[in-house]
Design a protein around this nucleic acid. Structure first.
Lengths: 199, 199
DNA sequence: CGTCCATCTTACTCAGAGTAGGTTACTACC
DNA sequence: GGTAGTAACCTACTCTGAGTAAGATGGACG
């Protein structure tokens, strides 16, 4: 349907095609409600092919998540190079993130939703994505901040990642929020703290 | 097995028993891997009974989530009454939360993990829990803070909830973290901002 | 124009969600 | 005590969708 019956395509290409379709189906229906049969049909291939390439439904999900994650990493790292101050680096990173979630909705949807598989590799995979972002921020902090307490720095990084993740989800419900505004809101609380706004 | 074969118990009691068992099984195996047959057997009852009471697997999960949520709400609301300042209210609320996640591991595990069901009622239910906490904080803010911008206040509340959720998960990996320390770390960033720690 | 192998298919098994319809134990009232 | 009514319960099924065994097919290269 989607693609004509151009059969017999090389492994790498078919694989990317499968990931692309799967990303859409997973993010549209959700992992549980998505069926391998449907994905196979949309790709224009039979089900065992999916298993040939990804071993299991979860394997396919994993591939999608990894794909999205590597894009997110690249985008945020790129954004932060060349920042002079900690504040600037943080701001650039946040902006890149909020742009990412707006531009690549399906990818973000996967990263955000599919953590339901506690105890399975996929859960670890989603956590791994957060760790990636956390490490970035932790590195940023240790570069620019008083190091003093490593544990506290790590906690602060987690804190930032969690806060932004939630803010991003909130933004989905508010179309009027641009990535720039989101960044500014986040920087405001993060950098100055709530005290500055208390009566 | 668990309970002797004390058959024929009244509706309400059986229901609470089912929720209790289900909470454990869901949090141990994860929603997907948990089977209704297993839960039924542990309860000491046949599968159709579960459906009689909860209609579906997801309905059972929902009941568990609602249960946990109402406890969380009660605990945090109780903690915040009688606080004099915004800072104090925030601190008390945070502490109550971090105590909750330590004391009621299964309940927290459900609230934290089972959001994988995008498009299903259960996803809304987990979001509803966050909204509950968000509303609490938003109310707190509007009481104590410069109101100015409602949107910004709402965003800040989301931000706080997300940050604490993530910090809580991080605490699971760090046994040395007490609820008191977690609260202090959170308050530090939230209240004073990162600027205060920059070199 | 055959041989080799990667790509692909048909046609299954099997676990687990959900259900139809019947059965049993407790209660209440004669 | 007996018996009508009903809430709690069970056996034995269907059906969807993940995962697989075994074989078919197209094309590159001699």
């Amino acid at each position: 349907m989607t693609t004509a019956k151009r059969k017999r395509m090389p492994r790498a290409e078919r694989m990317r095609q499968m990931i692309e379709v799967a990303e859409q189906v997973f993010s549209a229906r959700g992992y549980a409600a998505a069926s391998m049969d449907e994905i196979a049909e949309l790709v224009g291939v039979s089900k065992p092919m999916l298993y040939e390439y990804f071993n299991s439904k979860e394997g396919l999900l994993l591939a999608c998540i990894r794909e999205s994650r590597s894009i997110l990493r690249e985008v945020t790292e790129q954004a932060m190079v060349g920042a002079a101050t900690a504040e600037d680096a943080l701001r650039r990173g946040l902006l890149a993130f909020f742009v990412f979630i707006r531009e690549r909705r399906e990818a973000w949807s996967l990263l955000r939703h599919e953590m339901a598989l506690i105890g399975t590799p996929a859960a670890d995979e989603v956590e791994e994505t957060r760790r990636q972002q956390t490490d970035l921020i932790a590195a940023l902090m240790s570069g620019y901040f008083d190091s003093g307490d490593d544990l506290r720095a790590e906690a602060a990084a987690e804190f930032v990642v969690g806060a932004c993740e939630r803010l991003a989800i909130w933004c989905e419900r508010h179309d009027e929020m641009s990535p720039e505004m989101a960044t500014e809101y986040a920087m405001d609380v993060l950098w100055s703290g709530l005290r500055s706004r208390a009566r």
